[in-house]
Simulated scan of single mutants.
Amino acid sequence: MNRYLLATVLTASSFISTSLMAADVSFPHIETTGIGEIVTSPDMAVFSVQVSEIRKSAKDAKSAVDKVIAAFNKRLEDEGVARIDIESTNITLRPEYQYKKDSKPELIGYRANRNVNVTVRDLAKLNSYLDGALGDGINSITHIKLKVSDESKFIEQARQAAILDAKEKAASLAKGFGENVGGVWKITYRTSPRPTLMRSMEMDSSANIESTYQDAKIIIRDQVDVVFRLED
């Protein structure tokens, strides 16, 4: 049968890959892009805090920061956070100078900085951890990221939804043109994108954190490009 049918399906949020569009396919076929999307609620979080202190000597600056970090870590552990879920970065020390016009820079002390990343596995406790951090002497909450613990399960669900979407599109198109879908000739899959939030969780300590994270939803998407043969 001397015929050639090419159907390309695009969605508003994705495009068929260059390699798929450039494929030299000489037999009747349909190309589709399947999109899968799963919306779920976060059940855990990771937040980062920072301690910054300035003292006359580097030793005193380091000691001040270490004291705050020790108190913060102890409180978290007392409240049930596993030690493995508390990650403290290395301390940084640098001299601080005062600059005045027409004079040499004057050394006024040394600044010590240290960050701590905390994984929260009980989302209901996140807000109390954040409030406690500021009470422990933490200078700022620099980052909050909501997550879902069983991420791989939802990624697999999104992937299977994308595969089904590609099949359904191909079957619908073939039916509309009076054709039948045969086997799969080519599958193009790219690494699935990381889960995203419906709203930004980049905030400082002045934000209404509790209401924001409780209302948030996580979107997990996946995509697959498929070339289907058409039956002769």
Rank of each mutant, 00 (worst) to 15 (best):
I86S: 10
E202R: 08
A22E: 15
D43M: 03
Y189K: 15
R83M: 11
T18V: 04
K74M: 07
A158L: 02
R111N: 03
Q98E: 15
Y99V: 13
Y97I: 02
F47L: 07
R3I: 07
D165G: 06
L197P: 05
N208S: 10
M21D: 02
S140N: 11
V46M: 10
T212Y: 00
Q214G: 01
S206E: 07
A158N: 05
N117D: 12
I91E: 12
A124W: 00
V116A: 11
L146E: 06
S14E: 12
S13Q: 09
L20S: 08
K167Q: 13
T212C: 00
Y110G: 01
E168R: 13
D60I: 00
L173K: 01
P42S: 03
Q223M: 07
E210Y: 06
S19H: 03
P42D: 06
R94Q: 11
S192V: 10
V118L: 08
I220K: 04
R199I: 09
Y213V: 05
K56D: 08
T18I: 03
Q157Y: 05
S41W: 00
V184I: 15
L146V: 15
G178K: 07
K56H: 01
V227C: 03
H143E: 14
V39K: 11
I141W: 02
A174T: 00
S13N: 10
S211C: 00
N117G: 05
S205C: 01
V226F: 01
D225R: 02
L173G: 00
Q157S: 05
V184Y: 00
E202N: 08
R121W: 11
N180T: 12
G137F: 06
K101A: 13
S128M: 07
Y99R: 13
N2E: 10
E179K: 14
D66T: 10
S172E: 09
D225H: 04
L107R: 09
S152Q: 10
T89Y: 09
I35Q: 14
L164C: 01
D131N: 13
I54E: 12
I35H: 14
E231K: 13
I69M: 15
I218R: 03
A170F: 02
G36Y: 02
V184K: 06
G135Q: 13
A174D: 02
E37H: 03
G34Q: 07
R111M: 09
L197E: 08
V227L: 10
E179R: 13
Q157V: 01
R159E: 12
I35L: 14
K62H: 09
P95F: 04
I54L: 12
I16P: 07
R3K: 11
Q98S: 15
P193D: 11
W185C: 01
S211M: 02
